[in-house]
């Protein structure tokens, strides 16, 4: 499983490309939340499958790193497995499923439940980096809006939600203001995860391959989810707990069990759930650890 492939450079990309990506990352870190254009390369998988995240990981990964890859919180989905294997074969770097052991975590659509530490890097896969894209189709206009900090339009969208649904209806990819300056799309993570981004000790990097943008949040940076004074930001809540480990504070996935509509809720973060299980927590539908 750790046989490296012959005929490819370390981490697949050539060194000049990696330097270009690192330069973009430096700019991104210097301007938290600002979308830096970069020369996105042809990758051995199509757009929409995480090429941005992969390029950022390829840009920063080193021999001594320990890589974890998750997709919707799980280490064992097809995509997570493929991407982890890709890096394993092109770098020979150690991989893990344990959040606490990883130095690099590439993720699609979730932030791990266990708080990340100083020294870790989390890399998000981003489909559409522009938070204003659905409100303002013109790229020229959105760039101006960022440059001039004209974000009223985003609040118009939130106003509309409240007018129509009685509450802000956005539940994932919830817009945030980074470092009191740039409006940013956190990628389609559930809004449940937004608070984790605020003042996080780890470095957060974002890569959008198709749109050719990289952005970043340096450690310990203020990240505030947009809201109104009288409709403050709220995270999702569930009535039950995780069926396997009994957790009440994690993001739960719904799993349909049979054709009669029987269902259970399960932690989306597989590593977190397993840890809790190993510690002895058992949920209503789970079995005690051996």
């Amino acid at each position: 499983m750790t046989d490296t492939i012959e005929g490819y450079n370390f981490a697949y990309l050539d060194e000049q490309t990696k330097r270009m990506i690192r330069r973009a990352i430096l700019k991104a870190v210097a301007i938290p939340g600002f979308q830096v254009p970069f020369g996105s390369r042809e990758m051995p998988l199509p757009y929409g499958w995480g090429t941005g995240g992969i390029q950022v990981t390829a840009g920063v990964i080193g021999q001594d790193d320990i890589l974890k890859v998750i997709d919707q919180g799980a280490d064992d989905t097809t995509n997570a497995v493929s991407i982890r294997r890709f890096f394993s074969r092109t770098t020979g770097v150690k991989t893990t499923e344990r959040t606490t052991e990883a130095t690099l975590i590439q993720t699609r659509h979730r932030i791990p439940e266990r708080a990340l530490a100083d020294g870790q890097i989390i890399i998000y896969q981003v489909p559409i980096p522009e938070p204003l894209r659905w409100l303002e189709p013109s790229e020229i206009e959105t760039r101006k809006m960022h440059a001039l900090q004209e974000y009223g339009l985003m609040h118009v969208k939130l106003y509309e939600d409240i007018a129509r649904f009685g509450r802000i209806a956005t539940s994932y990819n919830y817009p945030v203001l980074v470092n009191d300056r740039y409006l940013m799309a956190p990628s389609p993570i559930p809004k449940f995860d937004n608070p984790k981004m605020d003042n996080m000790p780890a470095l957060q990097l974002f890569g959008a391959g198709r749109e050719k943008r990289i952005y970043a949040i340096p450690p310990y940076t203020k990240v505030k989810s947009l809201d109104f004074d009288d409709h403050p930001f709220e995270v999702q809540r569930w009535d039950g707990c995780c069926g396997l480990c009994g957790a009440t504070g994690s993001y739960l996935d719904e799993v349909i069990l049979d054709d009669q509509g029987e269902r259970m809720f399960v932690c989306s973060d597989t590593d977190y759930c397993e840890d809790r299980h190993a510690e002895g927590h058992v949920g209503p539908l789970g079995q005690a650890a051996e």
Partner: peptide, 24 residues
Amino acid sequence: GVSAGANIGERLMSVGARHYGDIR
């Protein structure tokens, strides 16, 4: 594409109004 209320409120929101009830 946005409501009459949002159309009128937009300018207020663009200069920092952040109380939904007041804007409405």
